[in-house]
Structure formats: C-alpha cells, structure tokens
Design a protein around this nucleic acid. Sequence first.
DNA 1: CGCCTATGATTTAACGTTAAACTTCATCAT
DNA 2: ATGATGAAGTTTAACGTTAAATCATAGGCG
Lengths: 322, 322
Amino acid sequence: MVSIKDIATEIGVTATTVSNALGGKGRVSEDLAKRIRTRAQEMGYRPSLAGRALQSGRTGILGLVMPDLTNPLFPRIAQTLSMMADAQDMGILIADSRGSPAEQSQALQRLLRLGVDGMLVVPQKGTSPDPMPVPVAVINTASDPQNAVSADHRGGGALVARHIREIGHRQVVILGADPVSEVQRDRIAGMTGALGDVAQTTVWGDAGIAQILPLIREGATAVMTTSDLLALRVRSELMRAELSVPEQISLTGFDNMAFSAAMHPSLTTVAQDVEDIARRAIAIITAQIDGRPPPGHGETVPMRLVLRASTGIPAFPSNRRP
Amino acid sequence: MVSIKDIATEIGVTATTVSNALGGKGRVSEDLAKRIRTRAQEMGYRPSLAGRALQSGRTGILGLVMPDLTNPLFPRIAQTLSMMADAQDMGILIADSRGSPAEQSQALQRLLRLGVDGMLVVPQKGTSPDPMPVPVAVINTASDPQNAVSADHRGGGALVARHIREIGHRQVVILGADPVSEVQRDRIAGMTGALGDVAQTTVWGDAGIAQILPLIREGATAVMTTSDLLALRVRSELMRAELSVPEQISLTGFDNMAFSAAMHPSLTTVAQDVEDIARRAIAIITAQIDGRPPPGHGETVPMRLVLRASTGIPAFPSNRRP
DNA sequence: CGCCTATGATTTAACGTTAAACTTCATCAT
DNA sequence: ATGATGAAGTTTAACGTTAAATCATAGGCG
C-alpha cells in the first residue's frame, strides 16, 4: 500500500505538503501540487480510510438496517441509497434485523461497533430504534418527524380507493397482512377514508384470505390489498373459484413489485418513489452528521397509482348479484 | 468516545495493559484483567475500528458487488452474507454495478477506496472482474475455480428436465432470458442434456415468448424457463390463450422466488442453496485474507428441485394433438 | 537599511490501538 | 550468595492522515 509518506519521500517534500496538495488545503505552489498529484496517480495512491478516520473521527460509512433483507423494498432502497452515498464518497454497510426487535438492536450495535457515522433504519413493525450515539434517519415510520422520511402510505391508500370508488364499486374487501405494521394500518386508513360511503370490510392475513370468497358471495366486487404478494395469492384463490379479474372482481396491490406487471391480468398497484425517499434519507443523515439542521420536517413522499388491467367497472355494482 | 487510554488512566495502568487485558494477550494478572474488563464495560468502551485498522492494516470490511441490486438473488445473498460476516465480526459494504461492466469496475474501485479487505463479486453477465489488490471471491461464475463458488446451474437444469421427461413429456420449449448470461446458458445446457431424445426448441427473451404459442400448437406440452419471472409471464400468455396449467401445459421456473409459491398454480422451480453459497464465499474470502489456502476447489453447490403444482402428466404426450 | 507581509513549506502533535522490546521484582536451584 | 527463570507491567514505536503552529525566504515600502 502506497502511503502519503512514500509520495513525500519520492518527491522530496513533507507528508503534510502532500496531504495539502491532494486535499487542496494549506499553501502549496500550483506547480508542486500538480507534480504531487500526478506522482500520486502514478504510484497508485489510495488514501487510507483508517488513517483519515482516526484523524477526523469519521469513517464515511453509513449503516443500513432493514427489518428483513428479503423485504421487497430492500433492493431498490439499497440500490438508490448506495448510489446517493457514492456521490458523497460514503459507503453503505448493511445489516439484517431478522424480523425481531431484539435482532434489530443487535444489528444496530454491530454496525456501531464497525464505526458507522450514521444509521439509516427501516424499523421493525411497531418499534422505534433505541437512541443511538450517532445520527439516525428513520425510513417509513413517522416516529420523530425531525429525522423521519416516509412514503405517504395513507395517501397511497386513498389513491387506489378513490379509483375503485370512481369506477363504480359499491362493496369492497380490504386485505391487510399484519395489523401490527404501522405502514399497513396507514395504507388501510387511507383506503377506508377515501371509500366514503362504499361498503367495506377489512380482513387480515391468512384468515382474511379465507374470508374473501364468502364476502364476494355477499356482494363485494373488489379486493384491495396492502401488498402485491397478497394480491397474487388472492388472484390464485379467485382463479380456483373461477372468478374472472377484472370482469367479476377488481383486484389491487401495493408496492409495484417486479412481478406485478407480469401477472395476468397485470396488477393495478401503488408505487413508492423509492429514489426520492432514499435521497431525502441521505440528506437528513448527512445534514445531521455535519451538524446542520436537517432539511424539511418529516414531509411524506407522495405515492403514485399504477393503473393496470386488474381493475375495471364491475359487472354487478349493486350490493347483491341477481 | 471512550478510548483505551481513558480506561488506563482511570485504573492507573498503561494503555498497553488495558489492550492486553481486553484482548487476552500478553501478561496481565487475572485479577487486574477482570478489573479492567468490568471498568471498560461500565464506561461503555467500544474499540475504535479506525485505530485497530491503522495498526493491523485491516478494516474488517468486505465489499459486495452485484450486477444489479434489484436482482432477485440479492436479498438472500446479502442477508446470508451479512449474517456470516457478523459471525466473524466483519461488515458488508454494498455497491451496485448498475448493469454495465464499466459501472462494475467503478463500483469495485469505490469499495476499494473505502478500504475493504476483500471483495465478493457476482459479476456482470459475461464479464470477469478486473484484477484487484485485495482478495476476491467470485460468485456464480466459474472463472477461476480457485476463488469461485457457484450453484450447479447445469445440474439444476438437469433436475427439472429429468422431471419433465419422467412424467411423460415428449416435446418441450425452453425459454431463456438472455443468451449472454453464462448462468442461463448453463441452466439450459443442463436441461438439454437431461432431456435426451425428447424433442426440444430453445427460444430467448421477449421474442421467444412470442414463439411459444406456435410451438405449442405444433405439439409442445411443457415450457421450461430459466427464471420464475419468465415463467410468470408465460403463465399470463397461456392464460390469454386459454391453455390450462398443468393439465394442458406444464411450466417450470428457476430460483424459487417469493411469489412462485403464491401463483396459481404454484410453480415448480429450482432453488439455490444461497446460504451454502454465501458460506463458502465467505470461507474463501477470509482464507485468502488470512493468507491461508482457500478451502475446496471451485466445487459447485447442488441445486434442489421444488415440485409444485405447475407440472403434471401431459394430457396428450404425443407429438401432435388429435 | 530595516521592517512588514505574503507565500511556500516544515515541524510537531495527535487520533486509538497494539507488537516488540524492555524493566522490575520475586522465586528458586545450585 | 549467585545467577537463572518467570511473571507482571511499562516504554517505545509505529500504522496514515491532517490541524495548528512554526520557520524561511523574497519582495515591497518607508
């Protein structure tokens, strides 16, 4: 490994001068600076993060903790975060909280031990992360509006619900995965709010899926879910019951996952602007690290309705079929 | 931040003694060592990675570069790698090569600059990573058997193909996503090998999907794909053509993605033992970092056939339907 | 000529940790 | 008594970088 000293002795100056030349600080004649830069380049110099970190107290590394790395959102978040971080010459260290709040704390501790400058956390359902000795940005849970950034799940729910209402549905089923999840509750709250006087029943999880066919027999013409994966499972149930989508039943998902466009019929769903969320999270974190006031105050990022083929005008919009 | 020195002055010994006590090296009386450990605990001491890294020349951080973080494999690889790494007190820094080989090099450079001790690379289709100044483990491409670990894609292909042949199919279509991908080519090679005298046609990508219905009209009774997502798209096509799965057409995927169990019918597919792959990759990398010879010599990790409802005995196994 | 200022570079020190060499003191065999 | 052995700690130094303070030199000005 080439160090700043090696360059210094090669050229015949001091380490400090090389540091200044490369960093653009202090006083170095433009001539010498250029010479140093080219020589450094030639010798394949790479600044040692460790040395710098020791001196500055900063590692330039952020930790990313997600409830479950197999979470559908993770890849896109990770991708965008890593690009944003790159742009600031920072790195993203990942950790998995493996579903449990206890593991979440451990993951945070591990990242802390590795010396991250800040933490990006997508918290476990229903938890908020322990207080940390480094800045934290919380994603998708509005714990403390100062450091949180979230998609507007409520607004997203309202978007689909309004669509369903406007195309004429008068009785719908809402299916959530887990009532513990604040995100899911928000989505559903948005739906119920926008449905207004449309008749609605909310059901949860596997038990909820089993209740759907009976509810359809009682006149429901649309099923709104809080995740594309749930929607796919409902689609399977409907197929088994020989109910056609969207002719007899309209179906909606959430999150615009990769497969939702490939299903038949392609799934109407709601997309998060993950890129915007990631950008804001990074902005919050870097601001805090640099001791600046975090920008914005917990505004949420709007969601977008993705209209596809799984929703349509109900054949029998009345409460009960003939 | 509490440093080793703080503890030293508190107790009235030298920094070295504290370091020795905590690290279990050197000579320290058990009595004193205990006192030091408890005091360190009380003061909330966390060793500085930077200091250690500077001294040892190691950061304890590995880089993970994937072609595309939205790759279906990524979450599971990342999850397992991060757990394995944790176990060795290491961290995983992620980077996205954004689809292009050029970006792949840049991603590697970035991680290098951040000071990783080693690199885990899932290379771009058809590329192998540039030589690196740190150890590298290559995943899923058998470039150099010394440092590569891969699922047995060929064997996986053979598994599904054998299944399809054994249940009586005599004419099949094979659908791949991209002929440039070595992984996909291996999977298909495995399939064609195991099909033996079964009539077969291989088609690729979007154009390939369009060719499937004609081929079925000519008598094909099974469609084998190299990815679950492709299978889902084929399923949609079949549905549009009112062909039932598996009664009329059998369908298979690859990778056992989250949705493949939720589809209707649930998808017969091939699963990678991602955990084993990750474990071996970490073993290879840590061995190289420690200067030990890498264990094993590029053996591949067997794949597993996941039998579900999308494959069955063909109604008309003959070459042409009545 | 002597003083001030600006410029260009050097010296010093520190960040936290640990390997290696060294001191101190007690114990024990000859 | 004399040296050898060993245990318990200490001193020194180094890893790479950079902030702060210091030194040297030249040119401008009264």
